Structures are given as C-alpha cells and as structure tokens.
Simulated assay, not measured.
Amino acid sequence: MEFKDYYKIMGVPRDASQDDIRRAYRKLARKYHPDVSKEPQAEARFKELGEAYEVLKDPEKRVAYDRLGTNWKENQEFRPPPDWNAGFEFSERGFAGGDASQYSDFFESLFGRSFRFTQAGREGAAPGRGGTHDFHAPGEDHYAKVMIDLEDSYTGATRTITLQVPEVDAQGHLTTREHRLNVVIPRGIRAKQYIRLPGQGAPSAGGQGKRGDLYLEVEFRPHPYYRVDGADVYLDLPVAPWEAALGATVKAPTPGGVVELKIPAGSTTGRKLRLKGRGIPSKTPGDFFVVLRIDTPPASDEADKAFYRKMAEQFKSYNPRAGLGVK
C-alpha cells in the first residue's frame, strides 16, 4: 500500500487554513471534473482530490492524519503504526460521513472501520445524541483511543492521561488543546473495550442540558515479552536444547509475577504450555500460554565447535527436514 500526501495532492502547505483548503479544492475540482475537463486522467485526479479533501476539510481527520508526520513520502510503501490515532479526542460527527470503500486502500487503512467508534461494546451509550439542537438536550459524546500497559489490566490502576482535542482557531488554522484527565483503569479490561467518563464530553448546545460522555477505547501498548489475543496472553520462552530434550523446571515471567514451569522431556519448538486462568483476569479469566522456542548456544570457540561435531556424529541418523520430504 502506498502513502498518499494529501497536502501535495491539494497543492497546499501543511499549515494551510481550512478556508485555503476549501478554496484549493473548489479550484481543482472545477479543473478536473470529468464532465467538463479535457485534462488527461481527469476522472482519477478528481477522485484523488475528493479523497484528500474528505480528510483535510475535517479537523478531526486532519489532525489524526498529521500525526503521521512529514517523514512519509508520496508513493512510499506504508503501513499505519498501531497507535497512530491514539491520544486524540473526537466527536461522533467526525466519523459519520464518507464511505471509506469509495476511496483508496490508504484511506481505508486510516479512516475505515478501525477508525470509527460505534455504539457496539459501549455499555450505557445513548444512541442518537449527537447533532441535536434542543436547548435541554445533552451534549455530544466524545471518543478517544488510549494505550495502556498490559500490567494495568492485571492489577487495575489510576493513570493521568492527556488527550489532544482538535480545534480551528479564529484565523481558520488547525490547532489542538489539551484535555487532562485522571482515569481509573478497571482490573480485567481488554483491548477494544471502553472506559466511560460521564460528563467529560461536549457541553450541551443549548447550555442547559448535561454534558456528553467521553468513551476511551483501550488498546495495549506493544510489550517486549507478551502478546495478547482477547483475554489470553502469550509468551515465547527460550529454552536450551538439553532442557527441551531432557525436561527441566525453569522460571518464566508472567504479568502476575514469576512462575516455575515444568518443561516436559522431548519438547520441541512451538509446543504450547497452558497456565489456566493466568491470562487477563475477569469473571471468566483468560489463560496464559507459554510457547517454547529452542535457543541454540553459539559455537564461539574450538571447544564448542568440537562439541557440536560430536553431537552431529551422535545424531547422524536424525534429519530435522524429514517432514518436508527431503533427505
């Protein structure tokens, strides 16, 4: 998938005002409209402009896109980082318009279903609150993705987080303000679940209704040891060849503390050992899986090499590739 430089497509600088972006789009849209344009590839250019404008006209999409930074170049191979849109506070309006399927794979990867916040999984959400102008109607709900440590889900925690709220200043330029919050992270929360903060959303449009709520969608930061699948947690555990062949009792880390683990004799790389109930805790806790990985010592001197040659002689009838049909 190729990176798209929406500013280059629109022919505007990255600090362009929202009015500058609107004017640039209107000018280029007239030039490349397929019904009237004589320019080569006008239809493709018009579609590309529409995609760029869909992002840059919307302060919420634009501030998230800007998060990617200036290091990416047009047509460069691209995959969005997992936390690229974390830490920004958005309104429901920012996700209501535009069909991602009509745009490029690049747009879909950023602003498709993974970018949208939905009512699904938000306990206590009030559908249809956004956009009303009733004087006493509650304010819009707001949404943000936040990254937490896996260990916080095991123990529960209170953390101070700072969200960036997209705004447009009096001169029409995109800016952000900080929204600082103390957040209680419930024990046992999983990725894609929400923390609801009542009254931390937008104020009522009429001024007399309640503020909206703020929903924080949880994601786990990448961990140097563990990976998470739902409520289950996985650890790749290096073991020595003799520990795998002969069996051993070794120490292994878990988010809940170090455990002593029995390695069965004759184990091979990829074997899974299950620690029931030691995954993410909840009413139905997940499991913790240790995936064995045989780690071979280096042959760093002549004595080590001699040992490996002796081992090769000892096991000369063993063919680790026999299952691949080669000798």
Rank of each mutant, 00 (worst) to 15 (best):
residue 1 M to S: 12
residue 2 E to W: 00
residue 3 F to E: 01
residue 5 D to Y: 07
residue 7 Y to M: 06
residue 8 K to S: 15
residue 11 G to R: 08
residue 14 R to C: 04
residue 14 R to W: 02
residue 15 D to M: 07
residue 15 D to Q: 12
residue 17 S to M: 11
residue 20 D to Q: 07
residue 25 Y to I: 11
residue 26 R to Q: 14
residue 26 R to S: 14
residue 30 R to Q: 11
residue 30 R to H: 04
residue 35 D to Y: 09
residue 38 K to Y: 08
residue 39 E to C: 05
residue 43 E to N: 11
residue 47 K to A: 15
residue 48 E to R: 13
residue 52 A to F: 08
residue 54 E to Y: 00
residue 55 V to I: 13
residue 56 L to F: 04
residue 58 D to F: 07
residue 66 D to T: 02
residue 67 R to L: 10
residue 70 T to S: 14
residue 71 N to K: 10
residue 75 N to M: 06
residue 75 N to Y: 03
residue 75 N to Q: 10
residue 78 F to R: 10
residue 81 P to E: 06
residue 84 W to P: 03
residue 86 A to P: 03
residue 86 A to L: 04
residue 87 G to R: 02
residue 90 F to Y: 10
residue 91 S to A: 07
residue 94 G to C: 11
residue 96 A to M: 15
residue 106 F to C: 14
residue 107 F to S: 05
residue 109 S to K: 15
residue 115 F to G: 01
residue 115 F to E: 01
residue 120 A to N: 10
residue 123 E to H: 05
residue 124 G to Q: 05
residue 124 G to F: 01
residue 125 A to N: 02
residue 126 A to C: 14
residue 127 P to G: 12
residue 129 R to P: 03
residue 130 G to V: 09
residue 131 G to H: 02
residue 133 H to R: 12
residue 136 H to W: 15
residue 139 G to R: 06
residue 141 D to E: 13
residue 141 D to S: 13
residue 145 K to V: 07
residue 145 K to R: 14
residue 146 V to S: 07
residue 148 I to R: 01
residue 149 D to Q: 13
residue 152 D to L: 06
residue 152 D to H: 12
residue 154 Y to K: 07
residue 155 T to S: 14
residue 155 T to D: 12
residue 156 G to N: 11
residue 160 T to P: 00
residue 163 L to M: 07
residue 166 P to W: 04
residue 168 V to P: 03
residue 170 A to K: 14
residue 176 T to R: 11
residue 182 N to D: 15
residue 183 V to M: 00
residue 183 V to G: 06
residue 184 V to R: 15
residue 184 V to A: 15
residue 185 I to K: 06
residue 187 R to F: 12
residue 189 I to C: 02
residue 190 R to Y: 04
residue 190 R to P: 01
residue 191 A to N: 13
residue 197 L to W: 04
residue 198 P to S: 12
residue 202 A to S: 14
residue 204 S to L: 03
residue 205 A to Q: 12
residue 214 L to N: 03
residue 218 V to W: 11
residue 218 V to M: 09
residue 219 E to I: 05
residue 220 F to K: 01
residue 221 R to E: 13
residue 223 H to V: 00
residue 226 Y to H: 11
residue 227 R to I: 04
residue 228 V to T: 14
residue 231 A to C: 02
residue 233 V to Q: 05
residue 238 P to F: 05
residue 238 P to A: 08
residue 239 V to W: 01
residue 244 A to W: 09
residue 247 G to K: 08
residue 248 A to Y: 04
residue 248 A to H: 09
residue 249 T to W: 00
residue 251 K to E: 11
residue 254 T to K: 09
residue 255 P to Y: 00
residue 255 P to T: 01
residue 256 G to H: 05
residue 257 G to Y: 03
residue 257 G to D: 04
residue 262 K to E: 15
residue 264 P to L: 06
residue 270 G to T: 07
residue 272 K to G: 00
residue 275 L to V: 14
residue 276 K to H: 13
residue 277 G to Q: 09
residue 277 G to M: 08
residue 296 T to N: 15
residue 300 S to N: 08
residue 301 D to W: 05
residue 303 A to C: 02
residue 305 K to L: 13
residue 310 K to S: 13
residue 310 K to P: 00
residue 313 E to S: 15
residue 315 F to H: 12
residue 316 K to S: 14
residue 319 N to K: 05
residue 319 N to A: 01
residue 320 P to A: 09
residue 320 P to G: 10
residue 321 R to C: 05
residue 323 G to D: 13
residue 324 L to Q: 10
residue 327 K to W: 09
